[in-house]
Simulated assay, not measured.
Amino acid sequence: MSSLFPMFLKLDGRRCLVIGAGRIADGKAEGLLRAGATVTVIAPEANDKVHALAAAGRITWLEREVQPGDTAGYFLVVAGTNVAAVNRAVVDEARAADILVNAVDDPPYCDFYYGSIVERGHLQIAISTAGESPALAQRLRKEIDAQLPADVGDWLAQVGQLRREVIELEPEPNEDRKWILHKLAQRETCGKDDCPSRIIAREHAAEVAQK
């Protein structure tokens, strides 16, 4: 098998379909919602979580069995029923239409895998074993999670704001801008006005203004 291509996918406003509404499928639906997707769930029955999402208007729930043609028009499909034959039929149909598809817990029938995620604000670290050992991915996630500072998401937000300020002052890429942006990514960045990286950013802004 070829190596996987790692990427982070923008799903804002994308139509995504989840087949199934049990314990496995509901987590996939929630993950797609967090990424901004427009989510439809097809299942004759649903657990309490899916009921609640549908009642709140966060997802569209079609209360029936999946039918041929249901995947048409979707950007991404997750087949998450507990019947392998149903999942594989969904995969075959989606692949025929070049739709990205994942059959939960069935690696050969997946165009993509769900990584084991460590998350702090906008920082995401995704771990994949290409379906070889999800248990190993989960173990590594726990180890990384334990080592990553709890406030790193807040720190990232500060770095992001400083980066936008620098780019606004100096929109054209150059070595000076590259240097300052790398300097701002050091751990001493913080929200305090006398933070070392903020001082560097202000000094850089003053130099740009004098040019």
Rank of each mutant, 00 (worst) to 15 (best):
L4M: 08
L140G: 07
K28M: 01
L17H: 04
R23I: 07
R58Y: 00
K211P: 00
R88M: 08
T71W: 08
A157D: 15
S2Q: 11
M1I: 04
R34L: 10
R120A: 03
R64T: 09
P171N: 05
N82G: 07
W61I: 10
I99M: 04
N174M: 01
K178Q: 14
A54W: 13
R15L: 05
V41T: 09
V39G: 00
I180A: 03
K192V: 04
L156Q: 11
L76M: 11
L148A: 00
S3A: 12
E65T: 02
D176I: 05
G22H: 08
M7A: 12
I167S: 05
E63T: 12
D106C: 06
G13H: 02
G69P: 08
F8P: 02
R177Y: 09
A25I: 03
E168H: 14
Q124K: 08
L123H: 03
V18W: 01
A201G: 04
E119P: 00
Y114A: 08
A72V: 12
E188T: 15
G22W: 06
A72T: 14
W155T: 14
G131R: 04
A130S: 13
R198H: 07
E65P: 00
A150Q: 14
A43Y: 11
H182N: 15
R23F: 04
A52T: 10
K49D: 11
R64Q: 11
L33D: 01
E188N: 14
A157R: 13
A205Q: 11
R198W: 05
D194M: 03
H122N: 13
E119S: 10
D48E: 15
K49T: 14
N82A: 09
I144F: 09
I180T: 00
F5N: 01
L76K: 04
Y109R: 11
G80K: 08
C16W: 01
Q158T: 10
P134H: 05
G121N: 07
L11H: 01
A21R: 09
Q124N: 07
L53R: 08
A55N: 13
W155G: 05
I167L: 13
P108M: 01
R164H: 11
